[in-house]
């Protein structure tokens, strides 16, 4: 069982109270009428499946019933941070890789696997991909 920090309730709660709702920070094409089928299909159906840092949308369904974001490590299930809707994550694949490099630990290039999906913020992942 996890204890997950709800940024709205401002305390740790049992995992049972929460539900995951998939990848966070999806960006709807600005002009759906004029975007390509590929762009629209990517937005609707394709999601990242990274080994490493993943930003996810969760809902505190038994509790305050608010949606919020979790930055989670998909290999060891560690929850690195939770943050409110509309906020930017302070921990991303690139910041984590940089920290680990500093501490002398060699890491595989973690981060996003970008088959099909387009991350919301290109800058967020440029370094992770490189």
């Amino acid at each position: 069982m996890f204890h997950i920090y709800c940024p709205y309730c401002e305390e740790y709660r049992e995992e049972e109270e929460f539900h995951p709702r998939g990848q966070a920070h999806l960006q709807r094409p600005a002009d759906p009428e004029n975007c390509s089928d590929e762009q629209w299909g990517d937005y609707l159906f394709f999601r990242d499946n990274p080994r490493g840092i993943h930003h996810e949308l969760w809902v505190h369904s038994v509790g305050c019933r608010k949606f919020f974001n979790i930055t989670r490590h998909t290999a060891n299930y560690e929850i690195l941070e939770t943050y409110k809707m509309g906020e930017r994550p302070s921990i991303t694949a690139e910041t984590l890789a940089a920290d680990e490099r500093q501490s002398g630990v060699q890491t595989a290039s973690g981060g996003w696997q970008t088959v099909g999906a387009r991350p919301e913020d290109e800058a967020l992942n440029t370094e992770a991909r490189a």
Binding site: C9, R13, E14, E16, E17, V62, G63, C64
Partner: peptide, 10 residues
């Protein structure tokens, strides 16, 4: 006061 899991319900 909190809203929480209680006996498998809320």
């Amino acid at each position: 006061g909190v809203t929480t899991i209680f006996a498998k319900t809320s």
